[in-house]
Design a protein around this nucleic acid. Structure first.
Lengths: 341, 341
DNA sequence: CTCAAGTTTTACAACGTTATACACGCCGTG
DNA sequence: CACGGCGTGTATAACGTTGTAAAACTTGAG
């Protein structure tokens, strides 16, 4: 029922290998022969069997993308960009989600789930240095998100400390002095630590106290966690005049709580998020946020993984992607004329 | 470097097939033998080569999930549930996005993108009946979202007309008489048509006019499209006292515009969305929405596809999933005590 | 017209797995 | 003690593809 090289070969009256040569654009095939074989291919509607090709070549044409969670729209948008970039190279993307737990991340990084992939793009949250050191795997790995240490893998990330400093500087320039940070983590997640560090450095540089009482730790990364953290800060009697959140969903959760408590954004409390998800542009108060270049991140990740497939594995590098601070109502207030986007 | 059955067989001093039998839990293997082989497997760290297994069995262990867009959190949540359900059956999910365009949906349904999959779960937007009729593919296909016609494929969906009627009835019971619908489509997308029909039927049943001037057509399905549609209605001089949107992002986009125009939700305009995405629970005004049972949909979709893999393909069926109307501030108003979720 | 050198095509052997069919031992039965 | 029957393990042949090496065909020079 299914057409194989053998069928095409019989139809064209040539050997199997000749058909294979045509399919693979092998050099030494006369135009006449190529033409003839191609006609048989078209006539029979031949499509190569990938499983067989993979078995023979040792490649599958599939890369895996392992993300903490898909609920966060940042990852959804990133996924879209990875899929697009991969399809440009005739690669297919297999999706996995780790829930951000160290165990799952470990499993994925060890290749437990998919023994079928050529490469892996992993966005770790809790994974530690040592977890990756003794990775017994030959599958190329590329890490998304900044890591503070040197590992023999490419990292693709924006400069988290610098971005966090930009965000906090913006708040300071607006005259805010008590800037809370929402989204620190007890488990010492790398990206969270870097953003806290940016917060601390910028406040210190401005001669303001980096008050650790205004740093709220959370267990998750969603709206509810941001809301919980905001409540925690307010319930502790503190009244910051600005909030910098680990990501946009948390910032939005925090804004919801501020709204419930009758505090106005940005008049009473200015808010800055991180990731610039679409949702932040359509709330009652649009959200100022750090906007990473997601398209570039996806593209660079795919290219890095694929570059490691050949024998000539390039040196592992840290690759910086661009970002911007996009200022909106949650810091600037409502403009006189209706906003454009 | 990589361990194969042959290596294990040599190590254990048995034949290759015996090792294979142990790996596959074949019945007729004595406990002693099983034990001995297992020890060799563990000692060498054998892992089956999927490409070879696929080639031999004709199955890949991969199903594809093709969605219009990942940006919509509904699809992100659905994806998570599909991945979980698939992994329960030792299946892996390959993700594709169609952008909701008919051409892309056609390509995917014809199996152009991925010749490596055992089954396909497709959530079509624009695809027409006839497009699927002449599908020349043996790969099992399951459709997500309700279709009004009969095709030889399983559909998994909630009852869109009934859900839409529930939403509109809720608005009518709140005393609203001018209910706009946001999200009709010029291209006659099936799900949109069904929701419009529910809107129309319920209004008519209540003895209210189903004013087609209050139906706004859109080109996309995102926040911006909802905002645009809302602006269009307001700019046309209409002032509905309620809005039912095709999905939550559109509802949120519409609320943003209402907010910009100084209209209060729900006092001036009540709003109901569809899909119950997490984002709707954290805006300044939380969103009333139709909440489909996403976990069930994902699970049913995976089970349907896998059920068609065997020789005994069951009759195609329409499978209904549950839904609920979750009432929140965008119709009920702000409760006296702070809300729970 | 022969032969060397080049170009094109072919036969065959893998890749790692599982299905088929068969061989072997063991048991209980006639 | 032969015999069928069952339960267990094994050799062999696929699955569809590509790399290797050799065969077959050109070409051009001597």
């Amino acid at each position: 029922m299914r057409v194989s090289l053998k069928d095409v070969a019989a139809h064209a009256g040539v050997s199997i290998k000749t058909v294979s040569n045509v399919v693979n654009n092998y050099q030494h095939v006369t135009p006449a022969m190529r033409e003839r074989v191609q006609r048989s291919i078209d006539a029979l509607g031949y499509q190569p069997n990938l499983a067989a090709r993979h078995l023979r070549k040792g490649r599958t044409g599939i890369i895996a993308l392992a993300l903490p969670e898909l609920g966060n729209p940042y990852f959804a948008e990133l996924t879209a960009s990875v899929i697009d970039a991969a399809s440009q190279h005739d690669y297919i993307v297999l999706l996995d989600h780790t829930g951000g737990s160290r165990d799952q991340e470990l499993l994925v990084s060890q290749g437990f789930r998919a023994r079928v992939i050529d490469g892996l793009i992993l966005s770790p949250i809790e994974l530690r240095t040592e977890d990756l050191r003794d990775r017994e795997q030959d599958v190329p790995l590329v890490l998304l998100g900044e890591r503070d240490y040197d590992l023999p893998y490419d990292h693709i990330a924006i400069d988290n400390v610098a971005a966090a400093r930009d965000a906090v500087r913006h708040l300071i320039e607006l005259g805010r002095g008590e800037v809370a940070f929402i989204g620190a983590r007890r488990d010492r997640s790398e990206p969270a630590q870097l953003r806290v560090r940016g917060w601390r450095e910028e406040l210190t540089a401005a001669g303001l106290p980096a008050d650790e009482g205004l740093v709220a730790a959370v267990d998750g990364w969603g709206h509810a966690d941001g809301a919980r953290a905001m409540r925690h800060i307010l319930d502790s009697g503190r009244r910051p005049d600005a909030v910098f959140a680990y990501n946009d969903p948390m910032a939005i959760g925090a804004m919801r709580v501020l709204h419930e408590r009758g505090l106005r954004v940005p008049e009473d409390v200015a808010v800055v998020g991180f990731d610039d998800v679409i949702e932040g542009r359509f709330g009652a108060v649009t959200l100022t946020s750090i906007s990473p270049d997601k398209a570039a991140i996806g593209r660079l990740a795919v290219e890095s993984v694929l570059a490691r497939l050949g024998d000539s594995a390039p040196e592992p590098r840290r690759i910086w992607a661009d970002y911007q601070l996009v200022k909106r109502e949650s810091t600037l207030g409502r403009p006189a004329s209706p906003p454009a986007s």
